[in-house]
Simulated scan of single mutants.
Amino acid sequence: MSATWYECKVKYRKTHDSGEQKVTTETYLLDAISFTEAEARINEEMAAYTSEEFLITNIKVANLSEVHPFENSDRWFKSKVSLIALDENSGKEKKTNIYMLVQANDVKEAFENTSQAMDNTMGEYSIPAITESPILDVFPYFSGDEEKLEKFNATEKSENKEESLVEETELK
């Protein structure tokens, strides 16, 4: 099941490093089932983020196929990826564009991270465009549950290895 990503614009009074307060509008990305859930989740996330009043000025469905976070990166880039397929009827190349959000520190690293994200792709592709995104942060839906699932899977694998070792020892 693929996620539906929502871009949420939030307007609030932000205190800058100089101590000066300015009204700013920032964009956040989160996955949700509906606009209603997206609104509820951005309210929850922003309440934890700021004690100031805030206003949600816009929520829209983001045109993104995938989101790829990378460690030690602080900005988000939108990568346009053209998937290249051969049209069997006409014999011509057909390009289908998808958009990915990739975390990186600069455009060069965003290109490398996009290529890394596309490593398991069987077909041909090209990356015709990468632009810095205004998105400040991404809030995935199951962030805590995924860690629990990974720990569960790792524990289960280690238990299976132990069982195999015991069986091998008993056979000898």
Rank of each mutant, 00 (worst) to 15 (best):
76 W>A: 05
27 T>C: 13
66 E>N: 14
40 A>I: 09
51 S>V: 10
40 A>K: 11
9 K>W: 09
34 S>L: 09
45 E>L: 04
37 E>I: 09
75 R>S: 11
38 A>T: 04
21 Q>V: 15
38 A>S: 07
31 D>V: 02
57 T>I: 13
21 Q>R: 13
25 T>I: 12
23 V>G: 01
13 R>T: 04
11 K>G: 02
70 F>T: 06
27 T>I: 06
10 V>W: 01
22 K>V: 04
47 A>H: 13
71 E>F: 01
42 I>C: 05
62 A>R: 05
56 I>D: 11
40 A>N: 11
70 F>P: 01
36 T>G: 14
15 T>S: 08
9 K>A: 04
19 G>C: 10
50 T>E: 04
21 Q>Y: 11
10 V>E: 05
34 S>Y: 11
50 T>S: 15
70 F>Y: 14
68 H>M: 07
60 K>A: 15
31 D>I: 03
57 T>W: 07
7 E>W: 00
26 E>D: 08
39 E>P: 02
28 Y>W: 05
69 P>M: 00
58 N>P: 02
17 D>V: 08
26 E>Y: 03
36 T>D: 12
5 W>L: 03
64 L>I: 10
57 T>F: 07
52 E>K: 14
7 E>F: 02
18 S>H: 05
68 H>I: 01
66 E>Y: 15
10 V>N: 02
41 R>F: 03
75 R>V: 04
52 E>N: 12
60 K>Y: 13
26 E>P: 01
73 S>P: 02
12 Y>K: 10
36 T>S: 14
37 E>L: 08
12 Y>R: 12
13 R>E: 06
69 P>C: 00
41 R>K: 14
61 V>L: 07
28 Y>M: 08
76 W>Q: 02
34 S>V: 03
45 E>M: 06
14 K>L: 07
5 W>P: 02
24 T>M: 15
28 Y>R: 09
53 E>H: 15
13 R>N: 11
59 I>V: 10
26 E>F: 03
77 F>G: 00
33 I>V: 11
28 Y>F: 11
51 S>F: 09
76 W>T: 00
73 S>F: 00
68 H>F: 13
76 W>L: 07
18 S>D: 15
48 A>D: 12
52 E>T: 13
26 E>W: 05
28 Y>H: 08
64 L>Y: 14
51 S>P: 10
17 D>H: 05
66 E>P: 02
40 A>W: 04
6 Y>P: 00
12 Y>P: 08
71 E>N: 09
53 E>R: 14
29 L>Q: 09
32 A>Q: 07
38 A>V: 07
44 E>G: 05
13 R>C: 04
15 T>K: 13
23 V>W: 15
11 K>Q: 15
46 M>K: 09
73 S>L: 00
22 K>I: 02
15 T>P: 03
33 I>S: 12
68 H>S: 08
42 I>A: 08
28 Y>C: 07
23 V>L: 13
47 A>N: 15
76 W>N: 01
49 Y>I: 05
77 F>A: 02
14 K>R: 11
68 H>W: 11
24 T>D: 11
29 L>R: 10
19 G>Y: 07
43 N>K: 14
17 D>M: 06
52 E>D: 12
46 M>S: 09
38 A>Q: 05
38 A>C: 06
41 R>C: 04
54 F>Y: 14
8 C>A: 13
17 D>N: 07
64 L>C: 07
38 A>Y: 06
14 K>G: 00
62 A>T: 04
10 V>C: 01
21 Q>A: 14
40 A>Q: 10
11 K>E: 15
61 V>E: 08
